[in-house]
Simulated scan of single mutants.
Amino acid sequence: MQQQSPIGIFDSGYGGLTVFRSIAEKLPAYDYIYLGDNARSPYGDHSFDTIYRYTLECVEWLFSKGCKLVILACNTASAKALRTIQQKDLPLKYPDRRVLGVIRPTAEVIGNFTSSKQVGVMGTRGTINSKSYLLEINKFFPDIEVHQQACPMWVPIIENNEHLQPGADFFVKEYCEALLAQSAEIDCVLLACTHYPLLLPKLKTVLPSDINILTQGEIVATSLVDYLQRHPEIEEQLGKNNLKSFYTSGDPEAFDEHASIFFGEALQSSKM
């Protein structure tokens, strides 16, 4: 009898929990293992090679826990590691495993949220410098002009639970103004980091009310539902016992304290 496989969800830290939350709401019956590489977070300013190495190590760890399908719920890892893992590592070592990211599903639908064809993308330095969104959005919507803005202070602010404090206001305003200065016609802003939804209350006070602010949880969850419908050979291997396990490369006690902010409920993690 074939062993049932959990869906692996990986992030460099806590942000992927916002995606996990949406996936679990849309696909509640499945089994999941979440891994946050908190000991080496944040990934945003690391080199391509370092992020690829870190991401591959974590993906292989999830494989060792029985995961046949892994979601990189991290924009930086999706931008800097996913393609190499899909094209090099999976065919050679794990031909029966699949790894998906968050960039392509978002690029596939972003055209539905803009009338002006002027889109803003806010992300970590790693995501922005990779130009992954420029390339992916252009594949599906060549008429859309993408304006990018790196927001290097946002992840540290959020991970230190300062995102709703007055001290965060300066950096929220600074990066939003820098983005909008690139074009007065931007009518859609993508939060291309899974941490950033926690800044939504402040972003809504800074960005004009007629701008669509996109977060990725719902988009990625909907895309995963579609993927499983199109790939029954993967779907039939997945466990459906409504089990959720959480792991961190850092301190589990510290992870549990912060993770509930992202996941929306208390949880208990174990050391990777």
Rank of each mutant, 00 (worst) to 15 (best):
Q3A: 15
E257M: 11
Y133D: 00
L207R: 05
E185W: 09
K117W: 06
P252M: 03
V155T: 10
T106S: 14
I158E: 07
C193R: 01
R40N: 11
C176H: 01
K131L: 14
Y14H: 12
N38I: 06
S78C: 12
Y247V: 02
H147R: 08
P95I: 04
P156A: 07
T124A: 12
T124V: 12
F140D: 14
I85T: 01
V121P: 00
A221I: 05
V59G: 11
G123M: 04
R83V: 04
S245V: 07
S269L: 05
E257Y: 14
C193D: 03
M1C: 13
D96H: 14
I137G: 08
Y54Q: 04
S270H: 12
G44A: 13
K271G: 10
F171N: 06
S209P: 11
I33N: 10
D256F: 09
S5M: 14
H147N: 12
S223D: 15
I261D: 14
Q4L: 15
V189N: 04
A81V: 12
T76K: 01
V99R: 08
A184E: 14
V59Q: 11
G167K: 13
L82P: 02
E236H: 12
H147W: 13
I211E: 04
K80S: 10
E159R: 04
K244F: 15
Y196H: 08
C188W: 00
L203P: 00
